[in-house]
């Protein structure tokens, strides 16, 4: 298993948002977390990416614990272990969160070059390959404000992929996109599957989720119902 979520509980101001959530993700598997707004699906994705702390339970990514429940406290991964975990998981935000002050290329290579000390030329070569694959090579030197929504999303995908993660998470990838962009996102996700990368999608788009997923996890009021 590439991802194990076990007995995850998360509350905001005493209100349980996630209640004993457990599931697993295999290599190359596409899983959609489906549910209504406020069901807790985005919070779940944020917990898996270490953007929210958890109250109980554990999250294990690529064999290492991001959160691990001990007797009275939650142990959080630190230092090199946390870096390895972050390298194993990519996150494509709903609104992409590209850095507006950096070009497309710099957005993609910032993390590998600065955080992971990858040689800049190698990072650029990897980024160029990704941009080519995602059909946006001509936007390499553009700034995010010069891109359309679909192009921004591809840059965000390239940024999340540059370190060859084992899992890629998408938060509402089809919100506010037309059918053509939707189809191209589905193609990109299927390509990940072929490369044995697991994909975790949070969506309220039932058609999209059902059409590309191997498995659907339905979540309601913080609980997995099926």
């Amino acid at each position: 298993m590439i991802l194990n979520v076990e007995g995850l509980i998360k509350s905001f101001r005493g209100q349980k948002v996630l209640d004993k959530v457990s599931f697993e993700l295999k290599e190359g598997e596409i899983v959609s977390i489906f549910g209504r707004s406020g069901a807790g699906k985005s919070t779940l994705l944020r917990c898996i990416n270490g953007l929210e702390t958890i109250d109980r339970g554990s999250i294990k990514i690529n064999g290492e614990y991001l959160y691990r429940e001990n007797e009275n406290y939650i142990e959080i991964a630190k230092g090199e272990s946390l870096k390895r975990i972050r390298q194993s998981i990519g996150y494509v935000f709903q609104n992409f969160n590209l850095f507006p002050n950096l070009t497309v290329l710099d957005n993609i290579i910032l993390s590998p070059v600065k955080a992971y000390k990858l040689d800049k030329d190698i990072a650029i070569e990897k980024a160029n390959n990704l941009l080519k694959k995602l059909n946006i090579s001509d936007k390499r030197d553009c700034y995010p404000y010069e891109l359309s929504g679909g192009q921004k999303q591809r840059v965000a995908i390239a940024r999340a992929c540059i370190l060859s993660p084992k899992i890629i998470c998408f938060d509402e990838p089809t919100s506010a996109v037309d059918d053509e962009v939707k189809r191209s996102i589905a193609d990109i996700i299927m390509e990940f599957k072929r490369e044995n990368i697991a994909v975790l999608i949070v969506s309220h788009d039932k058609d999209f989720s059902y059409s590309i997923s191997d498995r659907i996890i339905s979540i309601e009021e913080g609980k997995i119902i099926s």
Partner: peptide
């Protein structure tokens, strides 16, 4: 979101 993107990309606080 800018802080969060930097965080998931593994950038340190200084970076």
């Amino acid at each position: 979101g800018q802080f969060e993107a930097a965080k998931v990309l593994g950038l340190s606080r200084f970076e």
